[in-house]
Structure formats: structure tokens, C-alpha cells
């Protein structure tokens, strides 16, 4: 392969890697927020996002109702938030006692949601598009589509919004305090539960947004979204699992690496590749690529 050929391939690969990486990052942000505040790895993240995406499909395609896309998304957000509150309420009795037991309980919630999706929507494979005008243009070797721009805009808006909330608002200060030292926060009279609830709600919203944006590139079925969350988990591990900027950057790195791998090596071993990425990261950068100084809980 010539050098010019490599350059011709690599720019589009980088670009599409960054676009899908943004979505992995958004998915990972939800996981990391829940983990930072309540020390629980939320294995129901993907299943909840899948349920939300199916609700949008069901309400907007006519299979349940035929609402407009916007109101379907609003309803789905409401349902996702309600489910997030309910699942936090379920594990609330054990969340301070055992990280591991709470993590197992989230797996149970995930199974229930998975079953619910299969019961309500069946095992169908459906398409769910974004309602954005279709156009695309070229910038050098890169072709940019309206979908790419939509993903970029939404991601930037979300990251910006989260940044403002976490850095500038009282809730954000409480969130940072709880993730640094929950005991001290409780001593100071901070309500840990409300901070937990905030992060679980944020996680549900982030997961649903990521799912709605990733589904147009493939299709929607009861398994695609939960397995898409493996990319989000990998992104979170690469970022150190307790760092929000790490999760975002990790998502983009994972997106680029996956694109390179599937183009140059094999598209059939993506999950195996991600497993390798996780194991290598845990071995050589146990606290994430970015988080040398802060350190995870060992």
C-alpha cells in the first residue's frame, strides 16, 4: 500500500472514528457519573437505553402510536427517567453496604428491562432514523454528512451542559464533593441520595441520547444497543472509570481504534478487540490513560 493511499484512507477513518467515538463517550459519561457518585457499575445502562430507543420507535412509527419524533423522544425520556428512579430505588437499601451486591442488582434490573423489550416489541429488527435533513459535502478527503454534524452538535451541547452543571451549579459542587469523599459529605449534612438520584437520571438521559444517535448507523434490535454499551464500558475503562473528561476522550480513542481495527484487520472480531483493549489498559494504565494523578479505588 502506498503512502498516499494510507493518507487517503486514514483521514476518513479518523473522522468517522471521532464521530462514533463521541457517542461511545456520551454512553461512557453516563456510566462514569453513576460510578463516581454511587460506586456502582450500572450494567442496566445499555438495556435502559435500548428500552428508550424502542419506545421512541414504537411511539413514532405507528406500531404503538404515531406521534411526532420530538414528542416520542420526550415521552421516552420521561419513561427512561422514571425507570432510572425506580431502579435506583430498588438498590437504594444496599447501595452503601456493598458495591458488588448493588452491581449484581443492576444486572437483575438489566435482565428485567431486556425481557420487557422482548415482550413488548418482540425480536424484530427495525430502523430508526434521525429526523435531520439529508445533505453531505466534502472537505478535502473527508465526506461530512448531516448525521455527522448532528452527532457533533449534540455531543458538544451535552458535554458543555454537563460541564456547566458540574462546575457552576450547587448540584455540581455536591456531585463533585460526593464523588471525592462521601463520608465527609454526610457529616456535613449533604443528602447523598439526591446526588445519587441526579447522577442516575443524568446517566439514563445520556444513555438514551447515545442510543438514539448510534441506532441510525446500524439498526435497532433487542441486542444491538446493549452490546453497543460494551464500547461505552471500554471507553470508561480507557478513561479510568472515574474521570468524566477521561470518559469523553476515551470514547473518541476507542472509536478511532475500532475503526482502524475493522478496516485494516477484521470487522468480525470487534468485541474481542475491545476485550484486548480493556485487558491491556487495566494492565498498563490501571487508572486510565489520563488519570495518573488522581487514582482509582484499589
Amino acid at each position: 500500500m502506498s503512502v498516499a493511499g494510507i493518507f487517503r484512507d486514514i483521514l476518513p477513518l479518523l473522522w468517522s472514528g471521532i464521530i462514533s467515538g463521541c457517542l461511545y463517550g456520551v454512553g461512557a459519561l453516563g456510566l462514569v457519573m453513576v460510578f463516581k457518585s454511587s460506586r456502582v457499575v450500572n450494567f442496566s445502562h445499555g438495556n435502559l437505553a435500548c428500552l428508550g430507543a424502542f419506545v421512541v420507535y414504537g411511539l413514532s412509527s405507528g406500531s404503538l402510536l404515531s406521534l411526532s419524533w420530538g414528542s416520542a423522544v420526550a415521552l421516552a425520556l420521561g419513561i427512561a427517567c422514571a425507570v432510572a428512579v425506580a431502579s435506583y430505588a430498588l438498590i437504594a437499601p444496599i447501595v452503601f453496604k456493598s458495591d458488588l451486591a448493588s452491581t449484581i442488582a443492576t444486572l437483575g434490573v438489566g435482565l428485567i428491562l431486556q425481557g420487557a423489550v422482548q415482550l413488548i416489541f418482540g425480536a424484530d429488527i427495525v430502523n430508526l432514523d434521525l429526523p435531520v435533513p439529508r445533505f453531505n459535502f466534502s472537505l478535502g478527503a473527508i465526506r461530512i454528512s448531516s448525521y455527522d454534524l448532528a452527532v457533533l452538535v449534540v455531543t458538544l451541547a451535552i458535554v458543555g451542559g454537563l460541564y456547566v452543571i458540574i462546575e457552576r451549579t450547587k448540584l455540581g459542587v455536591a456531585f463533585r464533593a460526593v464523588s471525592t469523599n462521601p463520608f465527609a459529605c454526610e457529616v456535613c449534612g449533604l443528602n447523598l441520595r439526591s446526588v445519587h438520584l441526579f447522577s442516575w437520571l443524568a446517566g439514563a438521559v445520556l444513555g438514551l441520547v447515545a442510543a438514539l444517535l448510534i441506532v441510525p448507523t446500524t439498526f435497532l434490535s433487542s441486542t444491538t444497543v446493549p452490546s453497543f454499551m460494551l464500547q461505552a464500558f471500554t471507553a470508561a475503562v480507557v478513561g479510568g472509570f472515574s474521570s468524566l473528561p477521561g470518559a469523553a476522550v476515551g470514547g473518541i480513542l476507542v472509536g478511532i481504534a475500532m475503526n482502524m481495527f475493522s478496516f485494516y484487520v477484521s470487522p468480525e472480531f470487534m468485541n474481542t478487540f475491545l476485550l484486548g483493549v480493556i485487558l491491556l489498559t487495566l494492565n498498563f494504565f490501571p487508572n486510565g490513560l489520563l488519570e495518573r494523578a488522581i487514582g482509582g479505588r484499589v
Binding site: 472509570f241 468485541n271 476485550l275
Partner: peptide
């Protein structure tokens, strides 16, 4: 499999086992 996460809390191992479970069908079919 366990060696890389030897120094980390069990949560990292749990995440890695999720990747293991998802990689399995690919390996079997591939």
C-alpha cells in the same frame, strides 16, 4: 484473563468479564 486486573477492585474485573462474554460468540463463529 485475571492477571491484568490483579491490582484493581473487583468492579474492573466485572467489566472485563462483560467483554469476555460478548467476545465469546465472535470467537466461536470466527
Amino acid at each position: 484473563f485475571a492477571f491484568p486486573s490483579r491490582r484493581l477492585s473487583g468492579i474492573y474485573l466485572a467489566v472485563a468479564t462483560m467483554a469476555l462474554a460478548l467476545a465469546l460468540p465472535e470467537v466461536l463463529i470466527g
